[in-house]
Design a binder for these strands. Structure first.
Lengths: 95, 95
DNA sequence: GACTTATTTGCGCATATATGCAAATATAGA
DNA sequence: TCTATATTTGCATATATGCGCAAATAAGTC
């Protein structure tokens, strides 16, 4: 694995490795339907602006995808994609 | 999943989500035998003290285990343990 | 004991990151 | 157009983190 790939993987893990962001991911795990940011706000007790920024990080790292719907932004997990990347690391570590 | 478990998982991901620490993990992946810290130093171009601290973090998070051997510290991956934790997250995300 | 090697720890520093608040932007609806 | 709601952005701030260097500690060897 080259340095760039390693860096991207580290960025993914870093994105997931923050309590409130991981809380958002778990919240989205339990949602059958995509959720808007205000709804997601409720799972972590921080300002809406903070949630907005966390969701931006998760989007940039490909953890979630976002769709505009009127004045709302609807978020959902990139389930298989993230799961695959984590399993690839697990496989590598298990050797 | 309760708040404590979520916190522990976040800490694991945070430990893995730093470039030099992830480099150390990948280096250990490729080693059939456990390695001492000085040997691991070579894979990331930072001071020995920095590697020492990174290995301490990885040890605390259960990613690696350490054995004293004379004046050396021998490190090896907790392969199955880490792999299991990552797969559990992957499973949860995939839903 | 003196010396060498391996590792850790204290310290200072620079940068990154998480946060809240207020203001700005966007859009739906009256 | 005016208003309400959803979200983002600018700013300030506090804290965390990664780093190097030098000194301290630990343990093997002469």
């Amino acid at each position: 694995m080259n340095s760039t790939d390693l860096n991207e993987l580290a960025d993914l893990l870093k994105a997931l490795g923050e309590f409130n962001r991981l809380s958002l991911v778990y919240e989205l795990c339990q949602c059958a339907k995509p959720q808007n940011a205000m709804c997601l706000c409720e799972c972590c007790s921080v300002d809406a602006s903070v949630v907005s920024r966390h969701l931006k990080v998760l989007t940039q790292e490909g953890v979630v995808k976002m769709e505009k719907k009127g004045r709302e932004r609807i978020y959902s997990l990139n389930r298989t994609d993230v799961a695959e990347r984590l399993r690839a690391l697990a496989d590598r570590i298990e050797g």
